[in-house]
Design a protein around this nucleic acid. Structure first.
Lengths: 180, 180, 180, 180
DNA sequence: TTTT
DNA sequence: TTTT
């Protein structure tokens, strides 16, 4: 209809390692299972309660899929932004089912790793910069573009994210940030 | 798990009138069906394409449910914010199914009407009370609280949203804005 | 610091026509002034109150700048998504000042027109091309990419948004939707 | 104007300990200084670049202010949601200045702690629950309400967030979650 | 300066 | 089922 917005923002942890499948072109498509949860105390019983919600995420965005494949694992905490899509399918007995997923389309969506380097597992993904003192908690951010605001104006640090010609947004940032 | 965020933001149009059911307490619970869509031109064929996504919304937030019941109808354009929840149920033949909905829990979520009064249909949704005058042209916004930032500080226009004692956030704004 | 998110979401109306300046390359950079407001009733006095907040938006995203230049005017209602940036400058008397703006960087941010064609004023913003037909009643949405979720998978309607080679996300959608 | 939305979402780290001042009523109002940053590689020079943005946050929401006061410190990583407000003031020499802040009004906004218990400093804030295995990175979430979706319906885990009478949303969650 |  |  145009004039519409379809946005999901999650901060949660992966319930298992990313599942990667390949398109004919070799590009990865990654499925994530993310938990968010809430806790509260029941007013009646006084008991502590928790409700965990599980979300299925599908990453078609090529660069974010690569990031997910390389750096995420079970337990990783991430910020992710995508859109809601429901698809219909049939189970083995021919019963119609619907599945709703958070989809990061090509060139769209956001993914930011919120836990420390290697926190969720054994291997590091950064190359040891150690930048900001207040980064204690760490994490990495992978947008679909460079952080540039503009062109010539000195108000933005530089020109990037489209540099020469191609400029597929998220790949730019990815290429810059990650030691592939 | 805590440390998590589960947020959905939609701007779209209602595909049909709100469905209202009542809890034992008489409070309305409202179900909405909202469409968002995207259009693009197919690179191969050059054809115009459109994909519409349908979203099921459930409003338990009492005040927003009242707003929805009174002012929304088929075609209304709204901004809505809630959280994703998937629930399991069984159809008549006992087959397990899952439905994912955007839920506005008690005291949570946001709803803002974006189209003008009556724009979405033939009959007006305000019933002509002067109290609704400020909604006519541009939509109305129903948060869960007053627009106050703070307490005594003069930086905010005034104290509200909890005034004397109760202070259930969304009800406050609702009571103020809408002529129930 | 990486591992960070900086996002602003506004739905509001333009207080004046967009201001367009050109970079050396001829690309437009657009400044918008957007109002958001809240209304409530003062608990003490019973008076109706309103607080309007004015936001400065700068659009470096080339395609969204073109959309803004062509279709927005004083009074237009939009959804916009960008990031917060504060810059320092000196007024004519050398006093240091800071200005905080919502910036839509190159290839980033979102802009969706929420009011009908020409609703905000006297003249239409579409110039009658058939290409704009799908925007008329309900606003238009200009993301930075095609609405495709994926590549070959049939779950998404088609491949676009990067089709042949370039694939700068927002331009793609723009090229498709708007008759430049 | 109604029909508007004013929302800021940040994930970043505190540059210094929270600053707490008290209203006449004794309620805390907390100021935070939060850094978000982006990194990219300059296409021309090949150099790694980083741009850090500093944000001023003011928390009038009583419960979130208490959380901030008790659990945040320099280096803490948080998710925070508020609204943009610009206020005018005069410096000591009478020069007019403007400051834009992210404000969490009474009963509004969200705050979620994203780093592990005590990660940012020496003292723990949790009491040793050790809940979820995949929580490695930890964090705590403080909304303005209970996680309940509805009333009687069994689809939501329980009724809370307003229980008997008061029901100021964020306080409920806070009382439940934190060992004051 | 918008919008209601 | 909306909207364009």
């Amino acid at each position: 209809m145009a004039g519409s917005v379809n946005k999901v923002i999650l901060v949660g942890n992966l319930g298992r390692d990313p599942e990667v499948r390949r398109l004919g072109s070799g590009e990865p498509v990654v499925n994530l299972r993310i938990a968010t949860s809430e806790t509260w105390r029941d007013k009646q019983s006084g008991e502590k309660k928790e409700r965990t919600e599980w979300h299925s995420v599908v990453i078609f965005n090529e660069n974010l899929a690569k990031v997910a494949e390389q750096y995420l694992k079970k337990g990783s905490k991430i910020y992710i932004e995508g859109q809601l899509q429901t698809r219909k399918w049939q189970d083995q007995s021919g019963v119609e089912k619907y599945t709703t997923e958070i989809v990061l389309q090509r060139f769209r969506g956001e993914l930011t790793i919120l836990d420390s380097r290697g926190q969720g597992g054994s291997d590091e993904y950064g190359e040891g910069s150690g930048a900001m003192e207040d980064r204690s908690g760490g994490g990495s951010s992978f947008g679909r573009s460079s952080p540039m605001g503009g062109g010539a104006a000195p108000r933005q640090p530089a020109m990037a994210g489209g540099g020469g010609g191609g400029g597929r947004s998220s790949s730019t940032h990815l290429d810059d940030d990650i030691p592939f």
